[in-house]
Simulated scan of single mutants.
Amino acid sequence: MQFYRRLQPIRAISFDLDDTLYDNVPVMRAAEAANYAKLCELFPVAATWSQAEWAQRRWQLMQTDADLASDMTLLRLATIRLGLLQLGIDSKQAEAGAEQVLAAFLARRNQVDVPAQSHQLLSELGQHYPLIAISNGNVDTTKIGLRDYFSHVIQPGGGRRGKPYPDMFKVAQQAYPHLHPAQWLHVGDSPVADVLGAQRMGWQTAWFKSGLYDASSLIVLPHVAYHDNRQLGHLLLERQR
């Protein structure tokens, strides 16, 4: 565990989900395969483009539409719909088909194996701190067995943008208006979405450095960096004694 900034008293903790509390890489690989299989089943012409080419189209759309880039559900729907239109499918069929493909994706996307260590961490911390989930992803915390740990689960949608935009952090603050921003600790693996996003709000941050990113991606230093949930749990529980 590395400390970069002095930690102030913590009164509430928010957690990123994907690749912070569980390994989301194999989940997404399986979900993407299910997405492509359903797409080609419904629209054989979709096989004109490989799975990788559909993913590239989604990435390109992210670069041109900032709002879609922060809402994974809308981004996926838009990618499928626009792609089908380009392949000659009429708009009504493309719209309905995108919804069906998304349903197949989400069914597989919510088959997550959350490690026992994460359950233990949230259970123990929840006895001392209010916990909130703040995630850019579209995982269903009820289906993966995490919902009961959190007082609120905040995700993009309804005009609410994802991290690093301030929208979701503001929703969390509104839920606990008596807390000063510096009394929040946000935990996540993304140097931009989690560390930069939370610190722009005046929050403290804990960076999970065993996720998808290395230190070269850090734009600002977190307050603390850790590589194992046991380290984080020990640190935060010790502060309650």
Score class of each variant (00 low, 15 high):
81 R>M: 12
173 Q>C: 02
170 K>W: 15
145 G>T: 07
70 S>D: 07
19 D>Y: 06
64 T>Y: 09
54 W>S: 04
9 P>R: 05
28 M>T: 09
65 D>E: 11
198 A>W: 04
12 A>P: 07
189 D>S: 01
115 P>G: 00
158 G>T: 07
138 N>M: 07
184 W>E: 01
2 Q>T: 10
202 G>T: 04
207 W>N: 07
11 R>F: 12
219 I>Q: 15
188 G>H: 11
194 D>P: 03
125 L>M: 08
118 S>K: 03
148 D>S: 04
165 Y>N: 03
121 L>Q: 00
108 R>V: 10
66 A>H: 11
213 Y>N: 10
236 L>W: 13
129 Y>M: 03
94 A>W: 13
31 A>Q: 02
208 F>E: 02
81 R>D: 13
60 Q>K: 10
161 R>Y: 08
195 V>E: 09
49 W>D: 05
241 R>L: 15
50 S>K: 11
27 V>M: 00
89 I>D: 13
39 L>V: 00
60 Q>A: 11
77 L>T: 01
60 Q>N: 12
23 D>W: 04
77 L>G: 03
84 L>C: 05
59 W>A: 15
232 L>M: 01
138 N>P: 10
109 R>E: 10
61 L>T: 11
23 D>V: 00
11 R>Y: 11
99 E>P: 06
56 Q>F: 14
5 R>P: 02
98 A>K: 03
36 Y>E: 06
51 Q>A: 15
208 F>V: 01
149 Y>D: 00
206 A>R: 07
48 T>E: 14
170 K>D: 11
155 Q>R: 12
177 P>Y: 11
70 S>G: 14
59 W>D: 14
131 L>T: 01
238 E>H: 15
104 A>T: 05
91 S>V: 15
25 V>N: 10
234 H>V: 07
59 W>M: 14
167 D>Q: 02
8 Q>A: 10
35 N>M: 14
5 R>D: 09
61 L>I: 08
209 K>V: 10
201 M>K: 06
221 L>C: 01
109 R>I: 00
42 L>V: 06
88 G>W: 09
67 D>N: 08
182 A>P: 10
217 S>H: 15
150 F>R: 02
120 Q>N: 12
1 M>Q: 05
182 A>G: 11
17 L>N: 00
76 R>M: 08
45 V>K: 10
137 G>F: 11
202 G>R: 09
218 L>C: 04
69 A>G: 03
195 V>C: 09
126 G>E: 02
28 M>W: 14
217 S>G: 04
40 C>M: 02
113 D>S: 12
166 P>Y: 09
185 L>E: 04
180 H>E: 12
219 I>H: 14
89 I>Q: 13
172 A>T: 02
160 R>C: 08
36 Y>H: 06
105 F>V: 00
61 L>W: 15
199 Q>S: 10
232 L>Y: 03
188 G>D: 10
42 L>T: 04
208 F>Y: 15
208 F>L: 03
173 Q>R: 02
57 R>T: 02
96 A>E: 14
225 A>Q: 07
178 H>W: 15
108 R>I: 08
76 R>L: 08
163 K>M: 00
139 V>N: 00
199 Q>Y: 14
2 Q>K: 13
18 D>W: 10
